[in-house]
Design a protein around this nucleic acid. Sequence first.
DNA 1: GTGAAAGCGCTAACAC
DNA 2: GTGTTAGCGCTTTCAC
Lengths: 347, 347
Amino acid sequence: MKADKGRVDLRDVARLAGVSLGSASRAMNGAGASAATREKVERAAAALGWRPNHAAQALRSRLSRTVGCLLPDIGNPLYAQVFRALEDEFLALGYLPLLANGANDLERELRTLSMFMQRGMDGVILAPGNERSPELVEALRTLPMPAVVFDRELPGAHDSVVIDHAAGVRVAVERLMALGHRAIALVLWQGETRPVRRRIQGYKAAYAAAGLPVPELIVQAQSVTASAFEEIAELLARPARPTALIVQGTHMLNSALRAVASRGLRMPQDVSIVAIGDTAFARDHEPAVSVLTIDMADAARRLARLLVDRIAEPGLPARRERVELRYEERASVVPLHVEARPTARRR
Amino acid sequence: MKADKGRVDLRDVARLAGVSLGSASRAMNGAGASAATREKVERAAAALGWRPNHAAQALRSRLSRTVGCLLPDIGNPLYAQVFRALEDEFLALGYLPLLANGANDLERELRTLSMFMQRGMDGVILAPGNERSPELVEALRTLPMPAVVFDRELPGAHDSVVIDHAAGVRVAVERLMALGHRAIALVLWQGETRPVRRRIQGYKAAYAAAGLPVPELIVQAQSVTASAFEEIAELLARPARPTALIVQGTHMLNSALRAVASRGLRMPQDVSIVAIGDTAFARDHEPAVSVLTIDMADAARRLARLLVDRIAEPGLPARRERVELRYEERASVVPLHVEARPTARRR
DNA sequence: GTGAAAGCGCTAACAC
DNA sequence: GTGTTAGCGCTTTCAC
């Protein structure tokens, strides 16, 4: 009997099963082995407690069964939702998802992509902070593995899943207009990203469709995590202040709520609010905040499916899928009170 | 000249540098190579654009330079903070962190641990949902790589970083007592976890130290994500209702705020509130919610350090580090209004 | 310090 | 189908 090596490898399994190494490998991989052989090998593997060595499999087969997910910020509840859903999808498809925070930092994103290459990711889910960066575009172009872009518009042919922000914002604006609102502000950040551009586009489209001039009520904060408090407070101090606000994400919603309060205004009586993206914060706020919800589980399902399809068949033409926003009205949106004075407080 | 293989390997680099494969390897790994050799090899590597193949390195060296992080739920903003901080720490130390959601699901946790083994993680950060599970304890015991446990009390010798919930809750209770509060409720969940037990302990200790009997004001929701709305509303409906609430995390805070509002009570005039764990929700709520903050960056630093130390030196005695909570008072905590009647509304 | 050689554990190519 | 053999790209002996 041979000296115990501590670890058990497939050779040990093959020996115990009384078959060759190659047969054992085939038996465990489901490819071309007789039922009898598979039976014996599986029994032996179980008896020895054999577990495939992932590094060896990856080295030999050139497949890591791992996908990289580069998202802007897992601290953002919306992206946390995406990653949780991606994890479930990829695990079910036999892939392990590896999460990295891009943090809206180009250098960091490039380093991460480079690390994904070195670690032999079979594919990548990508949502860069700045989609206008030539370096990022070039990095994507030269990436040796397939990538699926999430809610960004990057040059080049690649699969993508995009969120239909334009249609969503338009629905929200039209709903507010139906309630009598005309001065509706849009609060975003300055980022060079698809979501920002498309939201503005949907906003303008709603005014155009209503035959109204587009008001000068779009404010853009410095960064996605920056406060938009000053900008919104300034807006609310104007003689013709907005009576409704559509705000992007958790940070801007916080800013908006504080700005409204600081001007002595009340939500929803004086100002209606709609947030983009549903979170516990919006749901549980008192009064609850109306939202444009994004089905992140659906988005994740599409992302995962596109990526594994392309890994399996790299020659496929580029596909682009769209995820709709759904408007969910809560207590934060009410009809315009015509008697309301811009800065009046009712008691 | 040889046929181009497409990929460049270290053998190509060595050839271009005019040294042997072994020397090239040593040069790139900093171990025992002359400055001249290193110079030549680095130049050649750069010229060819060589990147080490991670699977090959891992297979041969038995080191994956990857650590698994099994956290209960990345959707919880507190754990998102932990992972972001862990990512920075481990990346700086030369390790790649792999995130997995345990989701308070034993089966899933066990599967994840098994996957960490198979993928040859060099170490693991572990915060299981239920620390009383024998299966989990057994899995930890037989784990072939080092693990550092985060804020849990698991049997066996292992490194850990724990949060001093007991001291934190005690400080909060004592502060509320100093403001005149005597009926202080504690809202937690039922989980068999260290944080829950220690918070109760700190709560009782504060009453004991004040020479007061411990009131029957501890409520425990079914799950960490469940609503505690009913329980808190019941509490607030009692003749001798609590005048202050200490609540765990984001979900319970939401429940508490809604329960207070549903009883026609106001925060902070009628009920003071302290939340455990600081989040944007607590900070930006109107009025802002006082919190026991946990420095998750500090916790992550300690976790990462403990793990890499142990990877480097497995024989080290088990270490346990403690992270303190800091009480941060905001508008949600005010002195007890003696004139306040249990369910009265002042207008 | 350096080169030659031997694998890490597995899959894939090749005969049979 | 099955066994044999040859590597995947690298690190790590071992002589020198």
